[in-house]
Computed example of a mutant assay.
Amino acid sequence: MVHSTESRPVTIVTGGSRGIGAAIAERLAADGHDLALTYRVARDEAAAVAGACRALGARVLLIQADLADLDDAAGVVPATLAEYDRLTGLVNNAGVTMRIGDYIDIDLAEVERMLRINVLAPIAITRAALEVMSSERGGEGGTIVNISSGAATSGAPNTYVPYAMSKAAINAMTIGLSKEFGPQGVRVNTVSPGTTYTTIHADGGRPNAPEERAPGIPLRRAAHPDEIADAVAYFFGPGAAFTSGADLRVAGGS
C-alpha cells in the first residue's frame, strides 16, 4: 500500500522491540504505516526492528519508556505528536506475565507491577490517544487494537490467574470504548493470542511452555508472532471498516 507522507497512517505500537510487538511493527510498516515504537531496555533489539521497518518505507520513532511508570506512559502520545503532528492508530501490545505457578504463591509486588504495565499503562496511553483521534475533539478518527490473551477467558488456573485478570480488564476496555468512541470515529478491537513463541514464557520461568502446551492445543502447536500480526493488520485494513468491539482469538482452536 502506498501513501504520501502527509496521508500515511501514524501508529503507536507499545512493546515494539521484540516478539509479537516487533512482528506487528514490521507488518504495519509493510502496509504503509509510520510508527512510534516503545521499548523499555532492549535498545539494540528496538533499533533492529526500526531498521527493518525503515527498509519497508516507514518512518520510525523509538520511545524509551518503562510503562510501569505512569509518567513514562503518559509521555508516549505527546512524543509521537511532536514527531509526526498526528496520530491515527494505537496497538496496546506491551505486557508482562508473572512467575508461573499456583495462585497461593503469588508475589503481590510482582502483581502490582504487572497490573501497572498491563492495565494502567494502556488506560493512560489510550486516553491520550483518544483525545487526539476523537472527531468530537477535532481529530480524524482512528483505530485501536488491544492485545489481550486467551487466558482472559480461560482464567489460567495453576499458571497466572492475576495475569488472566489483567487481560480480562483489557477485553472490558475494548467493549466499553468501542461503544463510547464509535460515534466519534474511533474503532476499538481486541486480538487475543494463545500460546505464542516469544520470550515471555522464559520471563515467567517456563521457557519451554509452547512445546509443553502444544499437545493440548487443537492445532497441536503454538502460534508464531507473524500470525498474531496478521490479525492486528486486519483491523487496520479496509475489510474491517465496520468492525468494532470485536475480539479476534488467534489461539489454534483453544
Results as ranks from 00 to 15, higher is better:
residue 108 L to H: 08
residue 82 A to V: 02
residue 101 G to P: 09
residue 113 R to G: 01
residue 83 E to R: 12
residue 89 G to T: 02
residue 110 E to H: 09
residue 95 G to Y: 06
residue 88 T to A: 09
residue 94 A to N: 11
residue 110 E to L: 03
residue 84 Y to H: 12
residue 80 T to A: 05
residue 81 L to I: 10
residue 85 D to N: 14
residue 99 R to Q: 14
residue 87 L to F: 05
residue 113 R to L: 05
residue 102 D to S: 08
residue 100 I to F: 13
residue 81 L to E: 00
residue 111 V to E: 01
residue 113 R to S: 03
residue 92 N to V: 13
residue 100 I to G: 00
residue 98 M to W: 13
residue 94 A to F: 05
residue 89 G to K: 13
residue 79 A to I: 04
residue 95 G to W: 05
residue 91 V to W: 00
residue 89 G to H: 05
residue 83 E to Y: 00
residue 110 E to M: 10
residue 87 L to M: 08
residue 77 V to W: 04
residue 85 D to M: 01
residue 86 R to T: 09
residue 110 E to T: 07
residue 101 G to C: 13
residue 96 V to W: 12
residue 96 V to H: 06
residue 102 D to A: 13
residue 86 R to W: 04
residue 96 V to T: 15
residue 80 T to P: 08
residue 106 I to H: 08
residue 84 Y to D: 02
residue 92 N to S: 15
residue 80 T to F: 09
residue 83 E to G: 03
residue 78 P to H: 11
residue 101 G to N: 09
residue 113 R to N: 00
residue 112 E to C: 01
residue 101 G to M: 02
residue 89 G to D: 04
residue 83 E to A: 12
residue 84 Y to P: 03
residue 108 L to N: 01
residue 81 L to P: 03
residue 87 L to A: 02
residue 103 Y to L: 14
residue 107 D to P: 04
residue 98 M to V: 02
residue 110 E to P: 02
residue 83 E to M: 02
residue 107 D to R: 10
residue 101 G to L: 03
residue 111 V to I: 10
residue 107 D to I: 05
residue 87 L to Q: 11
residue 85 D to H: 15
residue 82 A to Q: 10
residue 99 R to Y: 05
residue 112 E to D: 13
residue 103 Y to W: 05
